[in-house]
Every structure is written in C-alpha cells, then in structure tokens.
Design a protein around this nucleic acid. Structure first.
Lengths: 146, 146
DNA sequence: TTGATATATTCATAGATTGGAATATATGAA
DNA sequence: TTCATATATTCCAATCTATGAATATATCAA
C-alpha cells in the first residue's frame, strides 16, 4: 500500500503536540476508549481544548469516535497499515518512558467512577492539580442511574 | 530512562513536516551520511531550506553532523533510546510505503558522482523537476580532484 | 592575500497553530 | 416543551512555522 505524503506527515504532526501525545497515550492504555470528560480529567485541560485536539487526532486518522448518549468515546483506530503499527509502538514507548504515566493514573482513577463500564459523570469530578476550577471545591453531582 | 515531554513532542514535530520526513528517509537510506548539496539535489529544494530543516532535525537530536572540508555531512543519530528505535522503524516504513522512493533514487544517482566516497560537486548537478533553476541548463563544472 | 564555493543565517512575511472565552449543538430527562 | 449537561464550534489574539531572498560564514585553492 502506498501512503500519500499528506497522510504521513499529518500523522507525525498530530503527535508533535504535547497534549495530543498525552491523549494518544491515554487512549492506548484504554483500548475500548474513553469519553471526553474522562480525558479532560486525566489531563486536567479545558474541555474545549481536549475536544479540539481530539479532532486533530481524528483528522489524522489516529483515533475514531462513537457516540453513546451524551458521551463521545474516542479510541485509537485499529492499525490498518504497517506505519500505524510502528506509530503505535512509538506511543507505547512514550507511555513507558515518560511522565505521561501520571495522566494514565488519573485516567484509571476516573474510570473507576464508571457504572456498567460507562461514564456517568461529566467533568470536574477530579481534584484539580492546577487549581483551574474556581472555588476549588469539587462539584457534587449524583450519578445518573439508567 | 525517562524522557522529558519537551524532547518527545519535539521528536514527532520534527517529523511532522514533509521536507524533514523526506530528509529522514534519505538519511536512513545512507547510513554513513550525505552532505547538504546531495540532499538539495535529492529533494530538489533550495539549499537554505534544506539547511534549515536539517537544523531542526539536529535540534530534535535525530541527526548529527560532521564537517569534511567545505562539506557538511548529516546522518541519523545512533538510537540510544527505545523511542529512537521505534521512530526509526516508522521512518523505515515511510521509506518503504511512500513516494519518498523518488527522493532516495535521486539521492543514489547523486551519490554516484562521489569520488572516493566523498562529495566533490556542489548543487545544481541534477536535472531539475520543477524548473526551479532559471535557464534550465545544467551547470557544467569540473570535479575537484584532491 | 583573493576568489570560488558549500553551507548557514538573517530578515521579512504569509500562513498555520494554539488556547481562552463565549457560544452553539446534541442528547436525555422531566 | 424546558432544563441540564456532554461535547463541539466560533471568535480572536498571541505565537509559532515555513520559506524566498539576500547575506554571512567557512573552507579550500591559487
């Protein structure tokens, strides 16, 4: 199979951003996918920003999305090209060898809040590192029971 | 070994540009390195541009340089980290599966002009695809005999 | 020294990228 | 319908990136 230049450098450019690389590592750690608010809490970045960066990853065909009610789940695409296998190996190495471990740990904690394997909370359920959320108090919200 | 974010996304960003990816592929094909003018002819890009992009690759610690007389030879760094092995695998796949083959072919043709394994010509020894060089005629220059 | 030449850098500028703030959209529940 | 909420988008300003053109630097030869 022949790759267009267009696709190839977009692939690397997509990973050439800290936030997107962190997202990719998180998604590699959760093969079935994570929803936006879970990723927002894992990275402690704003929701619009996470959403934007996920869009870039999607445009590069690194991730795919599926809607489930109000939640959008993103996961890494299945590698359908040797290059994607190599890219995946890179992401795995970054996962192993960098401080992205913290993000993954926060993500796992967040995933513990799921009910029946599904996200039932919005964002702002995690203690913030950066004090981004004003007031600082954790919003208390009851889980939606389906 | 732990990687700083700084290093990691710079690495991907360095490859997130068409010209730099083409350069990386060319250098993978010539492990002992190629000089700037050979790469200029292989890619048919301007010398300042090739020089600039090589600088970015160097800053990302993907390539290293050595001077030999008037010529600067660039080559891929030896992988000293698992991530660099993975990155190399990516570049190799791109080499195999994309139209960078044309660049590598032109580079090999250019390398045939070497004497004793060293570059003895400047740029503009190759027929131009894009008609970038005004006049269009190939500059005739005698090789320097050392 | 002077001249030729391989490479690097500077300058200017067009275009792309980033991210905060605000807003829009989409879905589900009541 | 109306409200709540998960996600996406738009607007905007700041910043970064890419590249042509011109120039500077470095090396070698004479």
């Amino acid at each position: 199979m022949n790759l267009a230049w267009h696709d190839v450098d977009d692939l690397f450019a997509a990973l050439g951003d800290r936030i997107r690389l962190r997202l990719a590592c998180c998604l590699l750690a959760v093969p079935t996918g994570a929803c936006v608010c879970e990723l927002v809490d894992a990275l402690d970045e704003s929701q619009p920003n996470v959403s934007r960066h996920l869009k870039v990853l999607k445009a590069a065909r690194l991730v795919e999305e599926r809607r489930e009610g109000r939640w959008m789940y993103y996961r890494l695409c299945q590698p359908d090209h040797p290059l994607l296998d190599s890219i995946r190996a890179c992401i795995a190495t970054v996962c192993r060898c960098s401080d992205v471990q913290e993000d993954v740990r926060r993500l796992r904690t967040r995933l513990d809040l799921r009910r029946d394997g599904k996200c039932v909370f919005g964002t702002a359920m995690m203690p913030s590192r950066s004090g981004r959320r004003k007031g600082g108090e954790r919003r208390v919200r009851l889980p939606l029971v389906h």
